[in-house]
Design a protein around this nucleic acid. Structure first.
Lengths: 128, 128
DNA sequence: CTGCATGCAAAATGTTTGCACTCTA
DNA sequence: TAGAGTGCAAACATTTTGCATGCAG
């Protein structure tokens, strides 16, 4: 069942970085897959609901998705050139955030933290 | 000159939290201001370019703006209920991020970090 | 007078939804 | 056959842009 949805899941797992729905759709089509943009969105929504992928918004307002290795809370170090992402743990940051929020009387805390840079591969290419 | 643009700037400075362009536009109109949505967007764009306001994307893909007290790099502790925001400094986080990125071979690092919670006022109201 | 500021309407973008159709279990 | 999965087209929301008008210096 759900062959198209499975296709999306696999495409995402095959990628090492964050991908936008549009981008994912384009590459699936380029690979000859018979799939509609709607289905890509719905598949990504389902995967997100299932907690199987992480989502974040780019500064351009586009949602990007990534199949993550761990289900636990974590952050990413993302290459702004090729999109490759490394999962990172930041216990120190979580503690710092909790302490800080408590000091200001805020409760029920959540946070977003993403690091962006240029990975060694892309930095090397840029030196051409 | 530029009376409308100034209106937007002041409205933003009057607010203690992040506001969306649409939201800002609506409240300006509600206050009787004769201003167009386009102008609000253009004013916010100009203020952003000038480094006078901070911008961030909500999880819904909407851009929200805030006039910040400091021009230096900082983060926010935002009330997800009323939007009120407290500016915070996180030198420890910056250092941690730099060290981590270097370890993974990433250069030219930037990051996003925002804390969301419920402020004491809103938490109190929620107990009604 | 000259040029930036303004605003309306239309375009562009990313995402969601209505609805009919098609598989699959 | 029943129900989920799929996809096209249209709806939506936010933001940007084209273009004509208006105001300030």
């Amino acid at each position: 069942m759900s062959t198209r949805r499975e296709t999306v899941r696999q495409a995402l797992h095959r990628s090492s970085g964050f991908r936008s729905a549009q981008d994912l759709y384009a590459s699936l089509r380029a690979d000859g897959a018979k799939i509609g943009l709607t289905t890509v969105y719905r598949a990504l929504q389902a995967l997100t609901d299932a907690g199987e992928v992480d989502v974040l918004m780019t500064n351009e307002g586009e949602a990007v998705y990534r199949a993550c290795a761990t289900r636990t809370h974590h952050h990413h170090l993302v290459c702004r050139s090729c999109g490759k992402a490394v999962e990172i743990e930041g216990p120190a940051v979580e503690d710092w955030a909790d302490e800080l929020a408590a000091r200001h009387g805020f409760v029920d805390l959540t946070h977003t933290l993403e690091l962006f840079g240029t990975c060694s591969d892309c930095a090397a290419k840029a030196r051409d």
